[in-house]
Design a protein around this nucleic acid. Structure first.
Length: 230
DNA sequence: GCGTGATCATTG
DNA sequence: CAATGATCACGC
């Protein structure tokens, strides 16, 4: 995909996102000269990659915010026609190698989760499955920073999950943990393994997991932004 | 193989 | 019909 030059300032980014509200994915694809997939079964990340290209997000697959210069993370958010999030939001992979045998545990504000969620450009897209991909419409993108209450919620969840990981209990974590932040499989398939530690501090191989925001949390973000009451 | 972008598909 | 567990493509 052909990338636009990155925005140099928040104001410049704001100007660009104001111009895409109401456009469809087909509109953006046409401007970038890319083919729209029939469905997203094979290209699940396509909407995100399209928006990255269109808005000039540049971090590639580095574990850093997309707009490196601005410290802003780009997240597309599939929503219903009524404006409710349809999917959870992937944030980052979890390091399963934090262990009680390590001396320097990562703190919340040092975490990759916090770094990515500190400043987010949300791009809601009306994306119900009965709407053909090219006709899916961008709603109103907006820049967001977590408030104190949201940070407390996220930090509490993160610390609880990291404590389980630290004590080698990552195999007992499932998606039901966490009020806003959950840990779910994040891999090509269920056979994939990555480095971790067991509860005795011994190195083992375990399924990779990623941090995801629940739809209840992103729904609250939308509600606050647009004063909706869903 | 790992981290990026996520949505899919089955289950309860 | 929401939620969990599984999966797909790409760059390096």
């Amino acid at each position: 995909m052909n990338f636009s030059p990155p925005p140099k300032t928040i104001e410049e980014l704001q100007q660009r996102i104001d111009l895409i509200a109401g456009l469809t994915l087909g509109d953006l694809a046409q401007e970038l000269n890319v083919v729209v997939p029939e469905n997203l079964q094979v290209e699940k990340g396509w909407p995100g990659q399209l928006l990255e290209a269109y808005l000039g997000a540049s971090a590639g697959n580095l574990p850093e915010p997309d707009f490196q210069l601005l410290g802003v993370e780009l997240k597309t958010l599939p929503i219903s026609r009524e404006g409710k999030p349809l999917e959870t939001t992937f944030v980052s992979v979890a390091q399963l190698t934090q262990s009680i045998t390590q001396s320097k545990p990562v703190t919340w504000r040092e975490s990759s989760i916090y770094k990515k969620l500190r400043h987010v450009l949300w791009v809601p897209i009306i994306a119900e499955r009965d709407i053909p991909v090219p006709l899916r419409q961008i709603a109103t993108p907006f820049l967001w920073q977590m408030d104190e209450q949201q940070e407390t919620t996220l930090q509490t969840d993160w610390e609880e999950l990291m404590e389980l990981i630290t004590f080698g209990h990552h195999d007992k974590i499932n998606a039901t943990h966490g009020e806003a932040l959950q840990l779910r499989p994040k891999a090509a398939d269920s056979s994939v393994r990555t480095q971790a530690f067991n509860q005795n501090g011994q190195p083992i191989q375990a399924p990779p997991k990623g941090f995801y925001l629940r739809t209840s949390f992103t729904k609250q973000i939308l509600n606050k932004q647009f004063q909706l009451n869903l």
